[in-house]
Simulated assay, not measured.
Amino acid sequence: MNATTVPLYQAKAEFFRMLGHPVRIRVLELLRDGPLPVRDLLAAIQIEPSNLSQQLAVLRRSGIVSATRESSTVVYELAGGDVAELLRAARRILTVMLAGQQDLLAQLNDSGTEAAAP
């Protein structure tokens, strides 16, 4: 392995770190339904324009979104359909994880009421 080669697990970790910001995730969710101009992203996310610009730059540099200029408007879109599938997979995984937590919480609540019974 030469000095510039990164192990796959490290590349994956970097990819997930790039996704590890709530604004970036929200942008990707919004773009899942199709391209949007920056003004629509700002209206939906309601953060400072400079913050959104910074997060969009990270997504653009990673190649996960692309930007095109239409006169004075910059429009963003997902660079590929795999990103939308990744978001759907994350939703499925979280649903299972949270359901498991709900089950555990119900068990804890049940065991607490059993201990309090005379």
Rank of each mutant, 00 (worst) to 15 (best):
97 M>Y: 09
34 G>N: 08
22 P>Y: 08
58 V>L: 15
71 S>R: 13
93 I>L: 01
80 G>T: 06
66 S>E: 15
32 R>F: 05
74 V>K: 01
68 T>I: 12
20 G>W: 05
36 L>C: 03
58 V>C: 07
42 L>T: 00
73 T>E: 15
65 V>E: 08
99 A>H: 10
46 Q>C: 14
72 S>Q: 10
35 P>D: 06
80 G>A: 00
99 A>W: 11
95 T>Y: 15
46 Q>L: 12
82 D>I: 00
78 L>D: 11
54 Q>H: 00
97 M>S: 11
73 T>K: 11
38 V>C: 00
47 I>N: 08
54 Q>W: 02
65 V>P: 05
79 A>Q: 13
101 Q>V: 08
23 V>I: 15
77 E>L: 03
89 A>L: 15
58 V>P: 04
88 R>E: 13
25 I>F: 00
86 L>A: 01
71 S>T: 02
23 V>L: 07
21 H>D: 10
90 A>Y: 13
97 M>L: 15
55 Q>A: 03
26 R>K: 11
57 A>T: 09
20 G>R: 11
65 V>T: 11
44 A>E: 14
71 S>C: 00
60 R>M: 06
84 A>Q: 03
45 I>M: 03
76 Y>T: 06
52 L>I: 01
29 E>H: 13
34 G>Q: 04
52 L>W: 04
18 M>G: 05
55 Q>G: 01
96 V>K: 03
25 I>V: 10
69 R>D: 00
37 P>G: 01
26 R>T: 15
78 L>H: 10
88 R>P: 06
81 G>L: 08
73 T>M: 10
53 S>F: 07
86 L>H: 09
34 G>V: 15
39 R>G: 09
30 L>F: 04
18 M>E: 15
79 A>Y: 08
19 L>W: 14
24 R>S: 09
62 S>V: 03
18 M>D: 13
57 A>N: 14
74 V>F: 14
79 A>K: 04
33 D>W: 11
67 A>F: 08
36 L>V: 13
33 D>K: 04
22 P>V: 04
99 A>R: 05
